[in-house]
Design a protein around this nucleic acid. Structure first.
Length: 439
RNA sequence: GCCCAGGUAGUAUAGUUCGGUCUAGUAUAUGCGGCUGUCGCCCGCAGGACCCGGGUCCGAAUCCCGGCCUGGGCGCCA
């Protein structure tokens, strides 16, 4: 098929901007054919773009020969441009339609698509991810990522206003930053290197200079996780603040979460309604449960956890039923948290780390960090890590490391909360997990 | 890594219990034809599938074994 050139055409309106008030106006639209309904003498084409759809109506006897012949060639997912006149009508749900004067065919598509692009015949997640670029054209999927975008915009706005600087730390690193999670190895000019699992040590170092920093970026965990809430590559929203402790950053966090919910609820009404998701703006402060309280609550529910142990998923699910919204878990046993979390001065067996839970899912984790070199080296050893591997990090503690604290939000998990999606891969454009490396 | 469940047209499913009218049904998608107000349009026609390999049996989509793939759960974690 011969394709048309765009020439000097430019879009005048997105589909969603066509309103009855524009009756009689000539517009130029760009987009894709989503659906064709041909009734014989009249043909309806649903034109889709990023913002929605609009009906193009072709009364066959009343349009030019060129419009007629081009419209006959159209198939689903063809990308097209058209110039036409807006017409107010009572015969479409939105009260408008566009009568084309000129159509350009800019791109074609195969006739048998791997997914139903109108979204009426739903496909399995596996089929959808295999054809993810096409899957993402569905209105309900676009809605997810518009919400994610809006959430991120709200977070940035919130942090900028409070004087945080956005930074970028290395993704390629020489050794483990946290010890625990497994790393992906990469070849770095013949040397062994790793993909970063977290910006933790770098953002801590930056509190010495930039004081308040945040970073949004992908991190990598080579865990063999096989769940609806884990990815091998995920996006973390990390902050770190000098001259602050856990209490300070917890207040910051709950305000940030509240702000995000407020903004998303306000700006994404349409998207939330497409997803049929009710978002409630949480009240602050969030509940603060201590580890001991949690263990006691769970015991009453018949779930026993030996003191000092981490809380297993099954127990979190029970906990999520008891606390169906946001809640912090604080005063964790020191030995259950990563090495850089500061122990309490009064009770060293407890630490100043916290988790922000949403129902049963860990959404954020953070805490006051150890700012003193000897304590940090000691904790490294206690956790079975080699302080020598961290000497580049440790030496910075000789140069004026301020007391500091911070947290990290799992962006995809936050998006799950905001959209009501139950599988993290739904809220990831191109998810990477134990078994998926493509597309 | 461990434990469950499952693989049927492009997509989503019925059928598998208890092997035989299954020549594998349905919806949607696709192709062709018809239709001037559809909006999950409608009507007619057509083509399109039992994951792979082995076994049991007169006979396997169905039972058995092995493999591959997928989904979910656990552990780990955000």
């Amino acid at each position: 098929m011969n394709l048309d050139a765009i020439d000097d055409w430019t879009r005048t309106h997105y589909s969603s901007r066509i309103t009855p008030e524009l009756d009689g106006l000539d517009v130029t639209l760009f987009g894709w054919v989503q659906e064709i309904r041909d009734l014989g003498g009249i043909r309806f084409i649903i034109l889709q773009d990023r913002e929605g759809t609009v009906q193009i109506t072709i009364p066959k006897k009343r349009v030019g020969a060129d419009v007629l012949s081009r419209s006959e060639c159209l198939q689903k997912r063809f990308s097209i441009a058209l110039k036409g006149t807006v017409r107010k009508t009572t015969m479409t749900p939105r009260g408008i339609e566009v009568i084309p004067k000129e159509i350009k065919i800019l791109g074609t598509a195969s006739c048998q698509l791997p997914l139903d692009v109108t979204g009426k015949t739903p496909a399995n997640i596996e089929t959808r991810l295999d054809a993810r670029a096409l899957d993402l054209t569905l209105e309900r999927n676009i809605a997810v990522f518009k919400i994610q975008h809006t959430a991120l915009e709200a977070i940035r706005e919130f942090l900028f206003e409070r004087g945080f600087l956005e930074v970028h730390t290395p993704r390629i690193i020489a050794s483990a930053t946290e010890g625990g999670a497994a790393l992906f190895a990469v070849d770095y000019f013949g040397e062994k290197a790793y993909l970063a699992q977290s910006p933790q040590l770098y953002k801590e170092q930056l509190t010495m200079s930039l004081e308040k920093v945040f970073e949004v970026g992908p991190f990598f965990r080579a865990e063999e996780s096989h769940t609806r809430r884990h990815l091998s590559e995920f996006v973390s929203v990390d902050i770190e603040q000098a001259f602050a402790n856990a209490k300070d950053v917890m207040t910051l966090l709950e305000q940030c979460i509240q702000h995000v919910c407020t903004i998303v609820k306000e700006k994404c009404k349409e998207e939330l309604s497409i997803l049929k998701h009710k978002l409630t703006v949480p009240e602050v402060p969030f509940k603060r449960l201590t580890y001991d309280e949690v263990v006691n609550e769970l015991e009453k529910q018949g779930v026993a956890i030996p003191w000092g142990e981490d809380i297993p998923t099954e127990a979190f699910r029970v906990l999520g039923k008891l606390h169906p919204e946001f809640y912090f878990i604080v005063d964790w046993p020191t030995r259950s948290k990563v090495f850089y979390i500061k122990a309490r001065d009064d009770k060293p067996e407890l630490c100043e780390g916290f988790d922000l839970m949403w129902r049963w899912i860990e959404l954020v984790s953070g805490g006051t960090r150890i700012a003193e070199k000897e304590s940090l080296a000691k904790r490294l050893q206690e956790q079975g890590l080699n302080p020598d591997a961290f000497k580049h990090h440790l030496q910075n503690f000789d140069y004026g490391m301020p007391p500091h604290a911070g947290w990290a939000i799992g962006l995809e998990r936050l998006t799950m909360m905001l959209t009501g999606k139950k599988n993290i891969r739904e809220v990831t454009l191109y998810p990477r997990d134990r078994v998926r490396l493509t597309p």
